[in-house]
Amino acid sequence: MGRVFVWKQIMNGYAFMLTGAQLAALPSGALYWGDAGLLAVSDLHLGKAERIARRGGALLPPYETRETLARLEADITVTGARTVLCLGDSFDDLDAAAGLPEDEAQWLMRLMAGRRWLWIEGNHDPGPIAFGGSHLAEYAAGPLIFRHIARPGAVGEVSGHYHPKARISLGGRALSRPCFLHDAARLILPAYGAYTGGLCWDDPAFAPLFGTEARAIMLGNPPRPLPKPPCRAAAHEVTHA
């Protein structure tokens, strides 16, 4: 049902359908919905290094925001998206949004100029934030509904939050990369931010969301579809003979 195509001869994407919408998973982890001219990215976690430092933790290389913005700029340029939707956890917390260095804040404003920009609330950055654009708890458009955390039973739902990551074995060597997860009813986006980890695709957290028909699209150039393995048993479950 999916096919690999070359997006405007520049960017390799993987095309698939979700409840009637024709979507493309991009190598960066962004989602492009061509018919709506909408680019969706999730879990940017801008300002993460600053937040960790503020709390007295390690002083990580303070370059992750520019790295994430550079990726976003490239995806906007290539797709020519008219609408950009940030699917929650765009900032690591509200102080991180306020504390974005001047040049990085300017860069973000530049990206926002001339297009529609939707901020969906996340668990890290609830409530409105200082930048322009529209602030929404969720966003419904045609057959799709965009929200940060997936709800069991939803249909046509696009969400983020879990940072899914696929893990495969290549001739005795393990390879782990962020991935999209989807079935006929829902889609979960990988984390887009530079400093983000992942939750393994067979984590019990995915059990209420996906049945046996689920697939992953592993990031790469081009992204590749894979069958999603069944979830591991939940940690608190006790099996005794």
Binding site: E50, A53, R54, L59, L60, P61, P62, Y63, P101
Partner: peptide, 12 residues
């Protein structure tokens, strides 16, 4: 300070 070329952590 983290020793970065970008002096990002003056406050922290």
């Amino acid at each position: 300070t983290g020793g970065y070329a970008l002096r990002a952590y003056d406050r922290w």
